[in-house]
Design a binder for these strands. Structure first.
Lengths: 211, 211
DNA sequence: CTCTTTCGCTACGAGTCGTAGCGTATCTGC
DNA sequence: GCAGATACGCTACGACTCGTAGCGAAAGAG
């Protein structure tokens, strides 16, 4: 596998150029085929040729849009995470539990499991890929933590930020704890994340406030 | 990549058979070469042929011992985790901080990073591989949690187990939280795990006891 | 010394990778 | 309309990796 990952991947809005525009249908077919193939074959079994055939598209067309498997998969997976959202449910604990439940449901999907960890694995060796993962997948999740924090501050459950730096670090530690723990339980330990487990975990997480 | 992962891999103690015994030197050379190649090329760049050449061994010899890349890597990586140990430092918090520091140092090694996540990724699709990972890598770590728990109970920092089931679940949740959080911070967020961060994380983790 | 197993070496078919060249299809600007 | 530009599907290619098979030589066991 080459260093890879240089291009900014397929642009969301193709620049209205001169010649024949790229087929949006093909884009969707390719990403759908990628997710299907991931669920069925896993990361190691996913081949560009296979995706192309399944999408009813020439292999060349894949490479015109995404220069490597990483770039293709990151786009196919990232869109799944767009569904995550933070809704005001009246208390910090309830808000967290709802988001964790959404996150767990996402990680239960077969196409998410192998893909996410394999992307993380490649990311440890490719700083550019890691940057894209953080930008496209991790940051949107971290945003949920900030939202929940702001809501809790409005309710008076949390005090206001002391300074920006420590607030930022606190968001980081909370985020790594929630995401890391849920991922580890589901993907490594391979045990289910039930509502009961979520409740106990969230209680543990919030106990500094209770005391 | 085939389903793989059927054989119990190379036996620790070769059965004293009749003919020429397998070279223990070759075993060590192969595992060392695997770790080196992992650090240098990552999971995707690691090829059986490359490992064989680097170890000064025929490719056939690799396949006689480990039937696939997974089996080879799991053995090469698992031995690194044997170094983790729990020592009595006088308090639960100090004990945890010491173990987390060891764990973080291990995850900082380049050969551990890509390999661990790639193994986890394959494990999501291969139950047998996941079982071997849990047996060879996860269980030894979980044992540290049980040790720390027992020490804390001796000191009176923790009450005795109520029943076996809930104790077991508590060990699970603690373990997933510690391992998941540290892994997520180092391997996904890509941020350093300093002694200061460890202290703050451990304090958060133990706050239910403080209150 | 013989028997058994492992050793390194070479070669093989199958599969994947990423690229190049071709003729065709489709959209834009004149 | 028509010319230019671009994307399309298709085919073929060399380079690489995979996992296996067959060989003669080496090394320990009895």
């Amino acid at each position: 596998m080459a260093p890879t990952t240089r291009q900014p991947a397929a642009p969301a809005v193709p620049p209205r150029g001169k010649g024949r525009p790229r087929s949006a249908t093909a884009d969707r077919a390719i990403l759908d085929a990628t997710r299907d193939a991931l669920a069925e074959l896993g990361w190691g079994g996913l081949t560009m040729g296979h995706v192309a055939t399944r999408a009813g598209v020439a292999k060349t067309t894949l490479y015109r849009r995404w220069p490597s498997k990483n770039d293709l998969v990151i786009e196919a997976v990232a869109s799944l995470f767009d569904a995550l959202e933070m809704t005001d449910r009246g208390s910090l604990q309830a808000d967290i539990e709802a988001v964790v439940a959404q996150f767990a449901a996402l990680l239960a999907r077969p196409e998410t499991q192998a893909a996410l960890l394999a992307l993380f694995a490649e990311g440890t060796r490719d700083p550019e890929l890691r940057r894209r993962i953080r930008e496209r997948i991790v940051e949107p999740q971290k945003h949920l933590v900030r939202q929940g924090r702001a809501l809790a501050q409005q309710r008076g459950e949390l005090g206001p930020d002391l300074d920006d730096d420590s607030a930022c670090e606190e968001v980081d530690i909370i985020f790594d704890t929630i995401a890391g723990t849920v991922e580890h339980r589901m993907l490594v330990s391979g045990e289910p994340v039930t509502t009961d487990w979520i409740h106990r975990f969230t209680t543990l997480l919030l106990s500094p406030l209770a005391g």
